[in-house]
Amino acid sequence: PHEANLASLSRLVYSAYLNNFTLTKEKARAILTGRAGQSPVVIHDMESLKNAESLFLGKWNIEREAELVMFNRYQHRSVEAICEVTEFAKSIPGFGSLDLNDQVTLLKYGVHEAMFTLWSAYMNKDGILVATNNSFVTREFLKTLRKPYSSVIEPKFEFAARFNTLELDDSDLALFVAAIILCGDRPGLLDAHQIEELQDSILQAFHLHLRNNHPDAPRLLAHALQKMADLRQLVTEHADVVVAIKQSDAAFALHPLLQEIYEDMY
């Protein structure tokens, strides 16, 4: 009966994942490998960025720098992703019964880790798929942006390369992301114990699910858990890059939701 409860929890979490994340790993992989039929617009230099932006926005504002255009797109996509992660969190059994302050804390610290996990599914060694506007931005082009903009995405490619070797599918990722959100050691939690209990159930469900879904990889849970520490480091570094951009660029405006999240974060 215990295993049946865990399997039912896995199904609930997976269904919440499918209901809330518009671009799944399966869909992203189909597009990246050309199985989906329609190929994305490839953005590989300033000219292709300019063309793509005119295509999506109707006009290209030459007054605006490419770096700012790219970073604003990135911010826009981040806010959408944070909304998706929030809706997903609300569907995780037990999350809604937590104190509202703790729900805020879990999201403040968890949304970026969840987001960078999901973005790994949209990345290959050559670039990242931005399927909301059907484009693929190359890693080499992102590296050519001026500093500190060039440092925004590169560490995420490095993480994705390591994370993607685990070959988790969407049903695994659903539980992995739920475990990231329900983390009992975020700063300032009022009832860490209650959250640890919820995370414990998710981790047990994840363990059982991986055993059934990847019978040939007995150490997969341990490997996946190690990646959670890497994600925390990735987010800390990301917050530093955002501060560097803020300090270096007068024209830069951080979205109010991102401002809230980064303020007093680490």
Partner: peptide, 21 residues
């Protein structure tokens, strides 16, 4: 905390239809 995270708070309560998004 909810005071300093008004948009996150709103997202939790009302979803992404909030005008702040």
């Amino acid at each position: 905390l909810t005071e300093r995270h008004k948009i996150l708070h709103k997202l939790l309560q009302d979803g992404s239809s909030s005008p702040d998004i």
